[in-house]
Write a protein that binds this DNA or RNA. Structure first.
Length: 576
RNA sequence: GCCCCGGUAGCUCAGCAGGAUAGAGCGUCGGAUUCCUAAUCCGAAGGUCAGAGGUUCGAAUCCUCUUCGGGGCACCA
């Protein structure tokens, strides 16, 4: 319809002002859809835009345009208003037809609206497997999973992935922490060492390994603890590998990582977050992907050697300075892994790579782009979404996020307390580039304050009305409903229908801007209109025609609420 | 020093590919339940959209500066 009206305007402009399409393209023809029906269903500002160019008052122009405007049956009226807007009013039949579309397509209404379908690799969370996921990761998880659902809804093919940092120093430290815990468990007295991982999960893993029959020589020598915490830890790792043998160390390391990974997967899946794949950093080494990437970079003339290290000339691609890829001692940097990993993503055939990262990684973005460019890919294929931080509150009281030993509040604690529905909704209700204050009290309140329940309740009320309809011996007749849509002429009904009609463009816009929170806002508005409608109108009435028409409308509202909530990973209870 | 994000009602926030009177909820005040779920609804009061310039017929929205707050600038991961 939008295109049709635009076409009409173009014709009218040509006739009344002698403006051709090229001239028009310069100015840009916009047609906006209006929320409140004060200004019609669509409006155009074209007369205002043309006024200065044609040196003619906008109102006069608008009148002339309308004068030569054809009006098809779907259009009831076109009028010009005060500053120079042209407002279009659709016929009632046309406006109501969206309900028929929703009845026909059901939950597929608004699906596949993206004009260009892409293969997307969406990477999110990717936290080191050295501890349970905390409330900050929770936001990444909720956002990433919802974005995946949203992009799929819009018609894209989406693969979600978790990059598992299962190699490197942090993993050695994790493994060391577990081994020392095993020794402790066997009665060895050990001083606390800074920089090691603590927490019940370390204990659990060490005990599980002991049960599996892993043994550590108790006569292990702890080297003198001199130097900085980092130096001590590194010395311990080296010593441990020597004493127990790097083979056993590696075995324990593998066991530990796989147990940690299981823990992460459970944290995520219990939060209804689905990762299609876990990509192992270690596999980059074993499959030679890092050397491969280095070769490509060198071949493309984007690397050089200096001070015994291999440097990527990332400054060539917009980074502040060049970066080390292979260290002096021959070990590759984390950045090297990332170059190889992102190149591999492209090789797997994805058009678009989306990374959800913490906002503290923003300095890393240009480096990633440079890495991608230096392997011969387009930097613009990478879309990094930076996530701002989360602060927990209990009412007005800020909750200490981490203890002195560096333990964060686990995300599982959060969603166990407030429930998965509330947690997911709250996490996603604000734009990713804004700080999130997560109020645990608010998330569990059962009233108007709490948008999750407000929306769910709207849907539950609809289900209840449908039941009541049956209970009174009526059978919903879609045919009668469709035939009487024109009777839905209350202002509130028109507002609801208009909002339902905006669902596809909401999906499109929020998927394009990765703004999952727009879905949450949309649902809030829809629920609000519904509750108001509920309070003012009787649905199960004796009049068969209006009853079926209204119930049809309610079914449409319910369809959209359920679909929208599902994008957010929130359930739609039938009863509350 | 450089870079990213933000400042909208007393509070928490929507609105931001420019558009017509800036919206919700809470809180305050006043109402609604013989009726399909009151986890609801209706009404009132409440604003220099941080400040100053600029672009435009038109700016909360775009640009510049200032200011306040959060975060970042490794041969760490």
């Amino acid at each position: 319809m939008e295109e049709k009206i635009k076409g009409l305007i173009i014709d009218a402009l040509a006739e009344s002002q002698g403006i051709n399409e090229d001239e028009l393209n310069e100015i840009g023809l916009e047609l906006s859809r209006n929320a409140n029906n004060d200004h019609g269903d669509f409006s155009s500002n074209i007369a205002l835009k043309l006024a200065s160019k044609l040196k003619s008052p906008p109102m006069k122009l608008a009148e002339e345009i309308i004068g030569s405007l054809e009006t098809p049956a779907e259009l009831e009226l076109a009028e010009c208003v005060k500053p120079g807007f042209i407002n279009f009013y659709l016929s009632a039949e046309k406006k109501h037809s969206v309900l028929e579309t929703i009845m026909k397509h059901g939950r597929d209404f608004g699906s596949s609206c993206a004009p260009e379908k892409m293969r997307v690799l969406l990477e999110f969370v990717s936290a080191n497997p050295t501890g349970p996921l905390h409330v900050g990761h929770g936001r990444h998880a909720a956002f990433g999973d919802s974005l995946a659902r949203l992009l799929k809804k819009a018609g894209h093919e989406v693969f979600t992935e978790y990059y598992l940092n299962d190699a490197g120093r942090q993993i050695d430290i994790l493994c060391l922490s577990v081994i020392l815990e095993m020794l402790r468990d066997e009665g060895l007295e050990l001083k606390n060492i800074n920089g090691l991982y603590k927490g019940t999960y370390i204990k659990e893993i060490s005990q599980a390994l002991i049960k599996e029959g892993f043994e550590i020589n108790k006569k292990i020598l702890i080297p003198k603890l001199d130097g900085s915490a980092d130096e001590i830890v590194d010395a311990l790792i080296l010593e441990m590998k020597n004493v127990i043998g790097s083979e056993l160390f590696q075995k324990i390391s593998d066991k530990t990582v796989s147990r940690m990974t299981k823990l992460l997967k459970d944290d995520l899946s219990d939060f209804r977050v689905k990762q299609d794949g876990f990509y192992s950093e270690k596999s980059l080494f074993s499959k030679g992907k890092i050397e491969e990437a280095c070769e490509i970079v060198k071949k493309n003339g984007n690397a050089y050697e200096k001070d015994g290290a291999l440097w990527l000339e990332s400054s060539k691609y917009g980074d502040d300075k060049d970066r080390v890829v292979i260290r002096e001692d021959g070990r590759s940097t984390y950045f090297a892994s990332d170059i190889a990993y992102h190149h591999d993503k492209k090789m797997r055939g994805f058009d678009l790579l989306i990374n959800v990262l913490g906002s503290d990684h923003h300095g890393y973005v240009s480096r990633l782009e440079a890495g991608l460019a230096s392997t011969g890919n387009k930097a613009s294929d990478l879309d990094v979404i930076l996530m701002q931080f989360v602060t927990l509150y209990r009412g007005k009281k800020k909750i200490q996020m981490s203890t002195r030993s560096g333990n964060f509040v686990p995300m599982r604690d959060l969603y166990s307390e407030v429930g998965v529905d509330a947690a997911r909704f709250f996490y996603v209700s604000r734009s990713h580039d804004q700080h999130l204050d997560f109020d645990l009290d608010l998330a569990t309140e059962q009233n108007n304050n709490n948008p999750v329940y407000y929306i769910q309740y709207a849907n539950a009320r609809i289900k209840s009305v449908l039941n009541e309809n049956k209970k009174r011996g009526y059978v919903f007749d879609e045919g009668i409903g469709k035939a009487n849509l024109v009777k839905l002429d209350l202002t509130i009904e028109e507002e609801i229908i208009s909002l339902l009609g905006k669902y596809p463009e909401t999906i499109l816009k929020s998927s394009e801007t990765r703004a999952v929170n727009k879905i949450a806002n949309y649902l809030k508005s829809l629920a609000q209109l519904f509750h108001s409608y509920y309070g003012s109108t009787k649905f199960v009435s004796e009049d068969e025609e209006i009853r079926n028409a209204r119930i049809l409308l309610l079914i449409c509202v319910s369809t959209i609420i359920e679909d929208g909530l599902d994008i957010l990973g929130v359930s739609s209870p039938l009863k509350m």
